[in-house]
């Protein structure tokens, strides 16, 4: 296939740009894009203010994230859709979008999507709330391993994963640290907290189960972080929480290691996983049990592994999703010295 490369080389080798001043061209184009977006934003804002929207919006950022150091993008509204990173949530008919205001009275806003900007807490509540996921370092420390002192001797649950339409992973973080498994997100009226690691966004849903499902089903996503797992260059410690077959995490399923050899072996094992799951093929669902792997190095990374025969895949908080074989999961357990985890 060298011939193909030669042909392609030959085809463009002599090609010269037509713009003699590309820097000016790019700047002009940038100004035109901004002007277009400002005009659209004006129209959107006018429409939404009519529906009760307050606050300022940023237009959608289409560019992919640089591999590291890319920041969170504030939720904003485009054409009646709330955009937060790769997530798109259509504003339901008759609903409004409100930016949280610290000075506002404590009230529960009905039929409202509340956007909570960093530093703008307040005490307003709404059926749907969106805020930035807490991130404490490179790759996003979305939540850490369960520390032994937090366990209090009781069993701790795993968490559930969803795949939003379009492929964005979403983790149900209600159950993290609680005593009971929470693998039925659409039952009951409890507050449901959905973490979108790639969009660094947390969505809180305060409504009954059917309404929660309706909102989640209406979400669309166009993620740009699929690929092999994004991992730290080096890890100084690793920890694994692995549920038993009821979803509870018992002492035998909580292992941490500061041993550099173990950490390096875990990293090596994960880096060797190249069976990338594309956005259209992602399948992790709430009915699956999940293992939680945290790697700490220059930053901390969380990897959630959805277990089971049907759809065994790993997702890194910093990006990347790969399919794992049973042998890989077994090897991971072996590296942590876990033989089997059984319910008792």
């Amino acid at each position: 296939m060298e011939r193909i490369r030669d042909l392609l080389d030959e085809a463009v080798g002599e090609l010269e740009p037509s713009d003699p001043d590309p820097v000016a061209g790019v700047m002009r184009r940038g100004r035109a894009v901004r002007a277009r977006r400002a005009a659209v934003a004006g129209v959107v804002a006018a429409v939404l203010v009519g529906g009760g929207v307050a606050g300022g919006w940023r237009m959608a950022a289409e560019e992919p994230r640089p591999a590291a150091g890319d920041g969170w993008v504030a939720p904003h509204v485009v054409d009646g859709v709330v955009v937060a990173g790769a997530l798109e949530l259509p504003v339901p008919d008759g609903w409004r979008v409100v930016v949280a205001d610290e000075a506002a009275p404590c009230e529960k806003l009905e039929r409202t999507i509340l956007l909570v900007m960093p530093g703008q807490g307040g005490c307003q509540k709404a059926p749907v709330e969106m805020r930035r996921a807490v991130s404490g370092g490179i790759g996003g420390v979305l939540f850490g391993p369960v520390a032994p002192e937090e366990l209090g001797g009781g069993p701790f649950t795993s968490l559930a994963s969803l795949t939003l339409r379009g492929g964005e992973p979403a983790w149900l973080v209600n159950g993290v640290g609680s005593q009971e498994p929470d693998l039925r997100p659409y039952e009951g009226d409890d507050y449901l907290s959905l973490l979108l690691p790639w969009s660094e966004t947390i969505i809180g849903l305060r409504m009954d189960g059917a309404a929660k499902k309706e909102i989640v089903d209406s979400m669309r996503s166009d993620p740009s972080r699929a690929g092999v797992l994004a991992l730290p260059e080096n890890a100084s410690s690793v920890s694994l929480t692995l549920p038993d077959d009821t979803g509870r995490i018992r002492a035998a399923g909580r292992i941490g290691s500061d041993d550099p050899t173990t950490a390096a072996a875990v990293l090596r094992l994960l880096r060797g996983q190249t069976d990338v799951v594309g956005d259209a093929d992602a399948c992790a669902g709430p009915e699956q049990l999940n293992a939680r792997l945290v790697l700490r190095g220059a930053g901390s990374y969380t990897v959630i592994i959805s277990l089971g025969e049907r759809c065994q895949e790993a997702v890194s908080s910093a990006g990347g999703r790969v399919r794992l074989s049973d042998a890989t999961v077994a090897e991971l357990k072996r590296l942590f010295g876990i033989a089997t985890v059984v319910a008792k």
């Binding site: 699929a226 190249t274 799951v277 956005d279």
Partner: peptide, 8 residues
């Protein structure tokens, strides 16, 4: 596959 976010 990694760059495009699709399978091999």
């Amino acid at each position: 596959a990694a760059q495009l976010g699709c399978s091999t």
